[in-house]
Write a protein that binds this DNA or RNA. Sequence first.
RNA 1: GGAGGGGUUCCCGAGUGGCCAAAGGGGGCAGACUGUAAAUCUGCUGGCUCAGCCUUCGGUGGUUCGAAUCCACCCCCCUCCA
Length: 301
Amino acid sequence: MGATATGKTELAVEIAKRFPVEIISVDSALIYRGMNIGTAKPGTDILALAPHHLIDIIDPAEHYSAWNFVEDSNRLIEEITSRGKIPLLVGGSMMYYHALENGLNKLPVADARLRASLSRQAGEIGWPAMHEKLTAIDPLSASRIKPGDSQRIQRALEVFEASGQPLSSLQQLKSTASKHLALKIILHAKDRAALHARIEQRFLAMIEQGFIDEVSSLKLRSDLNLSLPSMRCVGYRQVWQFLEGNLSRDEMIYKAIVATRQLAKRQMTWLRRQPQDFAFDCLAYRNDAIFESINKAFSDR
RNA sequence: GGAGGGGUUCCCGAGUGGCCAAAGGGGGCAGACUGUAAAUCUGCUGGCUCAGCCUUCGGUGGUUCGAAUCCACCCCCCUCCA
């Protein structure tokens, strides 16, 4: 686990050279086919080094979810284990890890039509008013969700309309957490300024590598638009706006870098809640130290 | 050389005598996070021995009980005329 640009892929490669692993990507952006440069997707040469899963599994027009991830990764973990290999989960989508580890309640699936109608209503009366509606049907959820949090208000209302039950009561049911033991290796960015520099450098390199062309060809497709989760990924969204003429090139670059920094910050917030026994500074760790930790953890167990 | 506009807290940008440590936005920092999560949202953001005090609105001086706001001079930037 690690924030964006902390070098997870590089470390995963080193681990894959030393241990009999298969990699499961824990990344809500690497799932999309055709989104390579902007997601910093490992190249085919690197992917060939070890079996890997959950990369390039859906089209950018399609939707994926934390629930899908939990199902997919649980299945893969079983399969890989039965092959006598070790599943190595690598990625920065912290909510996916969280969902896998702690489980999710059985809730109604996302419903595009319901969401569209809720968005339409919100457009007329505003999200704070939608929040009041939520207070009427599910006061507990409403008290947890802020009046400006459009996405969660929408989800809570969607769950109620789809199931006839308030989200909060469905969430009280016992959820199924993963029973697998995991050794969590965390890459920390102790030097924030250095991480920021790395993020900037990496984005500029993406531009060099043809990121704009990548987005440009996605934009040519009539079935993709800015409201899709895929096109809301960091970088893609800003380049898309640049191609629309809503941002200058410099603004686009600046905003994309800022968005990446902010993403990293949110990832670090999740990471701080994790046990820190196997945390390493992403700029100053030794592979030996990590291998040692892994060996020790396995022999202990 | 002449005419005009402007220099505000990290950045942009309001503010034209007290209610101003100074609107708003950006950035930054911290946090939340149950089927969109690279998403969505919340809080804080000059300093301190913190119900008060100190430093800040280009610089220096002045007017005033009181100035980011008025006056004088100086420095710098932009536009136009020469």
